[in-house]
Amino acid sequence: MSSESRATAAVSRGRSGATAPRLRDRARLAGIRAAFATLDRVAPEVAARWAVRLWCTMPASGGRRRDERTSLGETCRLQLPGGRSVVTEVWGEGEPVYLLHGWGGWRGQLGAFVAPLVAAGRRVVALDAPSHGESPPGELGPRRSTVIEFADALHAATARYGQASGVLAHSLGCTAAALAAADGMPAGRLVLVAPNAAVLTMTDVMAHRLGYTDRTKTRFDARLANLAGRPLADFDLARMHSQPRTLVVHDRADKEVPYADGARVAEAWRSAELMTTDGLGHQRILRDAGVIDRVAEFLS
């Protein structure tokens, strides 16, 4: 693992126990915070560039590499603008339903939903965003990507396989799916599992975690908006009111994305309903039988 990947993992992880790896993560984070505190005072532009680099670097997590597929579909590589490409996998026949993973994940995480959706008469198309799963690196290089690239991948998939009767997305994939729909991508229904409500809230959390002030954060936000090509407020799901009928699924014990985020989205969208689970966290929710049955029913 590269030093930057270790830094991202240290920034991303929550409260630590007494194990040696977690203690090392705490030490790394303390060193990162000290470096950012210095740069924030003397070179906030440098600090902002580093923060953006960390923001766009995927964490290393075994849980995000689980493979829940019970069978293999037909794989294909789709071209994106700028010479990029993404890998898709397809099962079944009928109106297409698209599966989009979250940050650092891959299509295999959503594999438990495939068989029920195929049985319900849907063609299931799962995709790996740039730099994720089996897809080649995106514009920023290996192990780096952006939510815009997630949305680009979804647009390319619907252009290839047809208008979405439904989209099932997890975590950051929810932001990409909602953004694509807000930008005009037709979708009959959306399922958002553990969605982040707003990017701006996440950048506040990152500033607090890394220990830099508004001197760096204002520059960081500007750089992030420039990288996305649009204001960060555009990524606030609670402001996206013109959306198809939506099911929001979120667990009260989610330690990566607060349950309040999902509840906020469900309350803000008139077309949305909220399914609450308890004790499944951020990853197990993708393989819970009750969740899978409800999602398959909703999308079919």
Rank of each mutant, 00 (worst) to 15 (best):
M1Q: 06
S2W: 09
T8L: 13
A18M: 12
L23P: 09
L29M: 02
G31S: 08
W50I: 12
L54W: 05
T57H: 10
G62H: 00
R64T: 10
E68F: 09
L72M: 12
C76G: 12
C76S: 12
Q79W: 00
R84P: 08
V87I: 07
E89N: 08
W91D: 02
W91L: 06
E95L: 13
P96Q: 03
L100E: 04
H101R: 02
W103M: 03
W103H: 05
W106Q: 15
Q109E: 15
Q109L: 15
Q109F: 04
G111E: 02
A115I: 00
L117R: 06
V118L: 09
A120Q: 11
R122E: 06
R123I: 07
L127V: 02
D128K: 01
A129W: 13
G133P: 00
S135H: 08
G138S: 02
R144S: 11
S145R: 04
V147H: 04
V147M: 06
A153R: 03
T158D: 07
G162M: 11
Q163L: 10
V167Q: 07
S171D: 08
A177N: 09
A177S: 12
A181R: 14
M185N: 06
G188R: 05
R189S: 01
V199Q: 11
T203Y: 04
T203Q: 05
V205K: 14
V205E: 15
A207V: 03
Y212I: 06
T216W: 05
F220H: 04
F220V: 00
F220E: 03
R223F: 05
L224V: 06
N226E: 15
N226T: 11
A228C: 14
R230S: 12
R230I: 10
P231M: 00
A233G: 13
F235D: 09
A253S: 12
Y259T: 01
G262L: 07
E273M: 12
Q283Y: 15
R284C: 02
I285R: 05
A289Y: 10
V291D: 11
I292W: 08
A296T: 09
E297Q: 14
E297C: 13
L299G: 05
